[in-house]
Design a protein around this nucleic acid. Sequence first.
DNA 1: AAGGAAACGGGAAGGCCGTTCCACTTCGCT
DNA 2: AGCGAAGTGGAACGGCCTTCCCGTTTCCTT
Lengths: 231, 231
Amino acid sequence: MTPPGTTAETPSRQLEPGLRADAGRNRDRILAAARRLYATEGLGVSMASVAREAGVGKATLSRRFATREDLITAVFADRMDAYATATTEALADPDPWHGFTRYIEAVCAMQAADRGFADVLTMTFPAAKALEARRTQSYDGFVELITRTQATGHLRDDFTPEDLVILLMANAGVIAATADDAPDAWRRLVGHILRAYATPGAPLPPMPEAPSHTALYRAMIRLARPAPQTP
Amino acid sequence: MTPPGTTAETPSRQLEPGLRADAGRNRDRILAAARRLYATEGLGVSMASVAREAGVGKATLSRRFATREDLITAVFADRMDAYATATTEALADPDPWHGFTRYIEAVCAMQAADRGFADVLTMTFPAAKALEARRTQSYDGFVELITRTQATGHLRDDFTPEDLVILLMANAGVIAATADDAPDAWRRLVGHILRAYATPGAPLPPMPEAPSHTALYRAMIRLARPAPQTP
DNA sequence: AAGGAAACGGGAAGGCCGTTCCACTTCGCT
DNA sequence: AGCGAAGTGGAACGGCCTTCCCGTTTCCTT
């Protein structure tokens, strides 16, 4: 089944071992550029933009990362690591409810800090296999965190892991709409939501600082781009 | 200032009076097509798609609605009416908290029913002047509804009108992510949020039916499009 | 019923995106 | 030091969208 003419038995290169020096350098530049663009604009940026930002030709980008999914996988591999380990850190907290809230806030903060990462977690997009593994790992840890926290009586019994998924989607919506005008608006949502998750009567987490009102409302009214007039 | 060669003194055509019969017919077909596409795909659909769906030429669409904003304004005029009158209906409810929750649920349901409308309410997009008027009208009514509900003690004192804006953005995010797989997921978010808005100790609204679990989680994992293999 | 104006559809031009091909450059091994 | 292979950027292509323009059709007035 193996093609006969190839070199003897080079099994398969996993990461980036077989790359020449300059190729590896360009790969890094591409990753840095993609990280930059994804963080601010989301995953919608074109491959051509990434190549331009990286200062390489479009062909080079296509050669290094055949598909957009490959690029996304490579860019967000480390952040998915952080996402996956966040649950273990939360589980290490002696106070389950405290660990739970810190976990929720940390994940939502990660979304706010990188719009591309928010897209990776929620939006409809080709799921990279390598990222999926981390996601399910994180999911399993979160299930454990839930049961522990519910055992303390602080977390509602009807809270389900899917509620986190919904929260991530909701948070992504807030971030996408307010990123330019009120980048802390998401804290207000998380503050409300954590109160809703808590068992009535349990101690409530403090309200995060309210976003500046006018700016937030303008975020809804205002448009993607400023008025074309520049006097 | 008026062009000299025109017919005597036709002051200005407000709606669609000066249109020829076939032109008006095409206008309606365009509006229907746009309504259809916007509802399912959001405001991102191209003008060419709208023209194709309407069965008219691209030029006709451009002639009838010069800019995308014009089209959006015309399409969502009636829904913005409903949005604006929803507050007055809520204010008519003898129980302010009941009116408040019904209002929240009604607006979020309108978002879920029409993805384009959700975009109009929240997403960054050129705000059509005609729609803005309705929006501020609705906003003013909502402020009155808030003060009344807070007076009953059911609604938290720190609830602000901007919280509704944030909720609309969050809801739009959930709807955008789950529309294809779990179109009722937004009810879960609203259920949580209304609980958070309520004063602790006040009677809680019933939990809406939970979305099917596997489908929801898949909505996060699954991709925009099904696998390209069609055997 | 007939002519002029309004409206129509589609083609041409221009822009952006993503992919593929190709001649030239650069690395790295010997 | 020099040669082969790996790597590179730009050109070219097809697809989609938008805008402009023109020849033709349809309406509506008189």
